[in-house]
Computed example of a mutant assay.
Amino acid sequence: MANVALIGSTGMVGSHILSSLLSNPAVSRVDTISRRTPNVAGEAPQSKLTTFVSGDTATWGAQLQALAPTPGIFISSFATTRGAAGGFDNQYKIEHGLNVELARVAKEAGTKVYVLISASGANKASNIPYSRMKGEIEEDVKALGFERTVILRPGLITGTREESRPLEAGIRFIAGWAGKLHSGLKNGWAQDADVIAKAAVNAGLKALEGDVPSGKEQVWSIDGSEIIALAKE
C-alpha cells in the first residue's frame, strides 16, 4: 500500500490524478497541498485524504516535510500560466521555484519516487521560454537523485479547464474531432487529462515496486502513445 503526496491537485490534470489515487486500492493515503480545496475533497473518504490549504506557498515545504508517514510517492502536476503569474519571469519563479523546492524537501524527507507532469518539447536548451523552463525543471529534479524519477511529457492536454483559454479550446476541439475519426490521428500529439492522470498514478505505483522498463531504472520518461498505453494497464 502506498502513501502519496500531491501538489497541483486543483488543476485539470491534477484533479484527475487525485480522483485516480482515491479510487486506487493500492493507495492507502493521499495528502494534497494546494492554494484552494480540491473539488473532490468533500466526497472523498476522510480516512484516505488529508488536505492542506494555504495561499502562502512559502508554508508548503514545511507541511510536506512534516507529513507522517513520509509519502513513498510525490506527484507534481503543479503549474501556472504567464497571464496568471503576471509575466513569464513570475511564471518561472513560481513554477520552477516551487516544483524544485518541494521536490528537494520530499527527497530529504525520504520519498523514493517522484512523478512530474512536464510537457512535450521540454528542453533546457530550447529557445522557447516555456519549453526551456519545463526542461530546466526536469533537469533540476533529476539532479536531486530520487530512487526513481518518472516524467510524463504529454502533448496538448485535452479536457475541460475551469479558466478560459480560447485558442487552446479551439485546438482541443480539433483534437477531439480527430480522435473520433481515429485514435491514431490524436494520440501522438494530444492526450486527455484523465488518461494522463491514470498513466501518472500507474507509473508511480510501478516505480515504487521497481517495475520499470529496462534502462529506465532511475529516470523513466513517458510521452505520447506510451502515456495512453500505460493508462490502460
Rank of each mutant, 00 (worst) to 15 (best):
I7N: 08
M12L: 14
M12H: 04
L18V: 06
S20Y: 02
V30L: 05
D31Y: 10
I33Q: 03
P38T: 13
N39I: 00
E43L: 06
A44N: 12
P45E: 08
T50Y: 00
F52T: 00
V53K: 04
G55Q: 14
T57Q: 07
A58C: 07
Q63G: 02
P69A: 10
I75E: 05
S77C: 14
F78P: 14
A85T: 12
F88R: 02
N90P: 05
Y92V: 03
K93H: 11
V100I: 10
A103H: 07
R104Y: 12
R104A: 10
V115F: 00
L116H: 03
A122I: 00
K124D: 13
E136L: 13
E138A: 10
E139N: 15
V141G: 12
K142Y: 00
T149V: 13
V150A: 09
V150M: 08
L152N: 09
R153K: 15
P154R: 08
L156P: 11
T158N: 07
G159S: 06
G159I: 03
G159Y: 06
T160C: 00
R165N: 08
P166G: 07
P166I: 02
L167D: 14
L167C: 07
E168M: 02
W177H: 00
L181D: 07
K186R: 15
N187S: 14
W189N: 09
Q191K: 12
D194W: 08
V195G: 08
K198C: 02
G204R: 08
V212R: 02
E217M: 08
I222M: 06
D223H: 03
D223N: 11
E226G: 01
I228L: 12
I228F: 03
A229R: 09
K232S: 15
